[in-house]
């Protein structure tokens, strides 16, 4: 494992923990898209089915279990525990527009036409766009709490670091996975506009608010 890969995983974990703590401590999930979080739970579930078929390392297994557990905890907090604070009126992105095309694409473009491989591919495609309901919600309300901005930034940094990891692996191991790379590029590009706002506003101590 190279440093980019490790920092990417760490950044991903930090993002998830930031959001869990924010919701838990404030007893509120206002401003958080339950749809994006539900999509992430689907992403982790469909991707990590190999927990039952392959053992890679304790690190690999441990992280997978933590990601899955955290994603379900998040969904439970938003749709059950703190349901009263969930801002469903602003969480109106149509998820079928993300799930259906990525599912079809996973059937058409994959490494191997087997159930586990198709589900893995679906999870890669779905992850690349799963944040859209959250970004849509931010653009609809025109603002995001600072802590939500930190979450989005850490989540964006994660896939960006993976891009560096893939360059490294191609260079030094001759390894590449085109499906992951293309989807990872799309995912990173979706965060670019947000990165700009984060650096120009949030880091200067301002709340992220979009011009009307």
């Amino acid at each position: 494992m190279n440093i980019f890969r490790f920092l990417g995983d760490l950044s991903h974990l930090i993002a998830i923990v930031i959001l869990l703590l924010k919701i838990w401590k404030s007893r509120s999930c206002a401003g958080i898209s339950g749809k994006s979080q539900a999509l992430f739970a689907v992403v982790f579930t469909t991707r990590y089915l190999d927990l039952f078929t392959n053992f890679i390392s304790f690190y690999n297994t441990g992280m997978k279990v933590v990601y899955i557990a955290c994603s379900y905890a998040m969904v439970w907090m938003i749709y059950s525990k703190f349901k009263a604070t969930y801002d469903g009126n602003h969480d109106t992105f149509r998820v079928e527009f993300l799930v259906a095309p990525t599912a079809i694409l996973a059937f058409l473009v994959n490494h191997d036409f087997t159930p586990l491989e198709i589900l893995w591919t679906f999870s890669i495609y779905l992850e690349s766009v799963a944040i859209l309901p959250q970004l849509f919600m931010v653009s609809k309300t025109g603002e995001a709490e600072t802590i939500t901005s930190h979450y989005l930034f850490a989540l964006g940094v994660y896939r960006t670091l993976y891009l560096f990891n893939w360059i490294w692996r191609y260079q030094f191991e001759g390894f590449f996975d085109l499906i992951a790379i293309v989807a990872g590029l799309v995912q990173t590009i979706l965060y670019c506009d947000f990165f700009y706002l984060y650096i120009t506003k949030v880091l200067k101590g301002k709340k992220l608010s979009l011009p009307a």
Partner: peptide
């Protein structure tokens, strides 16, 4: 090469 079986990444 284009690996597909063992997924060591997360």
């Amino acid at each position: 090469g284009d690996e597909s079986t063992l997924k060591d990444e997360l």
